[in-house]
């Protein structure tokens, strides 16, 4: 068995250049459909949420372009962050993001997600969202009008259609980096329930920075969580561990 984690596990998701003609056609169709069927999960902790009702309802009618609101991260394609995020809510955002299924897209709405906005001076809010999770599009403004939101959606749709919106893969490929940023805020014992590394191995998305010193902390604290009975490693996760060590060397 190869030590390359991307080869270790048989999987049907391969990079576009490796795929056959039929595969590429299928990918094209899939991207086409993805672009026209976007389910949105609103993370409405900020004031920007107030702009969403007019965007969705009869004035602008988002359903025209196949977008629908969804209520759980499992069903959603887009995570819409509608404003400032405190450290506490960021934990939830990270967890929610990890629970979404790829391809998944994040849109930061309003200035707060870009530079903290009016909360620039606050010790409790984050300043730049894409340090913690990959963001596909930002919408500047305090707050942006529905037209701007729509504009961004259309932009995102176009990029999905062209197969360019791949930011979600970045999270797997550079998980160690993202995790490091998260750990800076939450402490080194931070652990979300989703096994991102396992998924990266599973779907051949392991990159140079998937594993590193920060993911090692996950290992370090795993027994601690086990002991508390808080998060038990499940069989899939247990299987992935030995290979992890190979890679991290």
């Amino acid at each position: 068995m190869s030590t390359d984690p991307n080869q270790a596990v048989a999987c049907r998701t391969v990079d576009a250049e490796e795929r056959s003609l039929l595969g590429r056609v299928l990918d094209r169709i899939a991207d086409h459909c993805r672009a026209r069927s976007l389910f949105v999960l609103h993370y409405c902790t900020g004031c920007g949420a107030i702009e969403l009702p007019p965007t969705m309802t009869s004035r602008f009618d988002l359903e025209r372009v196949g977008m629908q609101p969804m209520v759980t991260p499992r069903q959603a394609d887009i995570l819409l962050i509608t404003g400032y995020l405190s450290v506490k809510t960021l934990k939830r955002v990270v967890m929610t993001y990890e629970q979404m299924q790829g391809p998944k897209y994040v849109i930061g709405l309003g200035s707060c997600t870009i530079n903290g906005g009016m909360y620039w001076n606050s010790y409790a809010t984050i300043k730049l969202l894409d340090r913690y999770i990959p963001v596909d599009n930002y919408i500047a403004g305090c707050m942006p009008r529905p037209e701007a939101i729509q504009q961004v959606f259309l932009d995102l749709m176009g990029r999905i259609d062209r197969g360019e919106a791949q930011a979600w893969k970045d999270y797997y490929r550079r998980y160690d980096w993202y995790l490091g940023q998260q750990q800076q805020l939450f402490g080194t014992n931070w652990q979300a329930p989703t096994d991102v590394v396992g998924e990266a191995i599973r779907y051949r998305l392991v990159g140079e920075q998937t594993l590193g010193s920060h993911t090692a902390h996950l290992e370090r604290y795993a027994p601690y969580y086990d002991q508390l009975g808080i998060i038990r490693p499940e069989p899939a996760r247990m299987k992935a561990r030995p290979q992890l060590e190979v890679v991290s060397r």
């Binding site: 169709i29 009618d61 025209r64 196949g66 299924q101």
Partner: peptide
């Protein structure tokens, strides 16, 4: 009083969902 989804919307949704790359 909206326009509503395009004609192929049900199909788009289904194809999109089946072509999700990670599945839980």
């Amino acid at each position: 009083r909206r326009i509503g989804p395009p004609l192929l919307q049900p199909l788009y949704d289904i194809v999109k969902l089946y072509s999700k790359k990670t599945q839980v």
